[in-house]
């Protein structure tokens, strides 16, 4: 398709330079690059200096608890052709560590501070991995999937009295009919309590 010409050119240049990169043109103005974790720094440097992707829009982290991985996503923007690159990589979830990119972008510092706090990722080279949003946080980093928010709120706060007489509809119906829901059904039962 002709309208994705620029995107395809960018994808091609990346593929040529980084052979192991998995490059896809997702849609207009979006190019997704999946890289080995050790290639992120060279890639960001190349994209910034050689391809004019000078704007770091954000760094995001996704916790793939089941795969024991964190996914890091670096979003870069080129002001001339307005194309965005999402550079993705996986890092190990146990003792997560990654390279800091504060020397490339000022704003990376803030993103890395937050990820240190919320996911527990240590960004080596960031001199300011200090407390950011949370205060005196002792528990596991709260944005990790295994952090139980409901339990946290139950342990931290109390409910105002007056709502104890709430009932569950499904339980009320089974009580009337005598139905016994087997163990495998419990995951599928819709509860309103």
């Amino acid at each position: 398709m002709e309208e994705l010409k620029i995107e395809k050119e960018i994808a091609e240049e990346i593929s040529k330079t980084f052979h192991s990169a998995e490059v896809t043109v997702k849609r207009e103005k979006r190019v997704v690059v999946k890289l080995r974790d050790d290639l992120i720094t060279p890639f960001l440097s190349y994209a910034k200096n050689n391809m004019n992707f000078i704007h770091l829009a954000h760094i995001s982290c996704v916790d793939w608890l089941e795969d024991n991985k964190f996914e890091l996503i670096y979003s870069l923007l080129n002001y001339d052709n307005k194309v965005m690159i999402l550079a993705k990589t996986y890092i190990d979830r146990e003792n997560p560590e990654f390279v800091s990119h504060t020397n490339y972008w000022d704003q990376a510092e803030t993103y890395e501070r937050e990820m240190r706090e919320m996911y527990g990722i240590n960004f080596k080279g960031n001199k300011r991995l200090t407390e950011f949003i949370l205060e005196d946080w002792q528990g596991i980093p709260p944005m990790r999937r295994d952090f139980d928010t409901v339990k946290f709120s139950q342990d931290t706060f109390y409910n105002r009295p007056g709502r104890e007489n709430a009932q569950d509809v499904r339980t009320t119906v089974t009580k009337k009919s005598g139905e016994e829901i087997p163990e495998i059904g419990k995951d599928y039962t819709v509860r309103n309590l």
Binding site: V169, R170, V173, T174, S177, T189, V190
Partner: peptide
């Protein structure tokens, strides 16, 4: 389905 379970009765 909204899963209310009224039907089971």
């Amino acid at each position: 389905c909204i899963g209310c379970g009224l039907c089971t009765d």
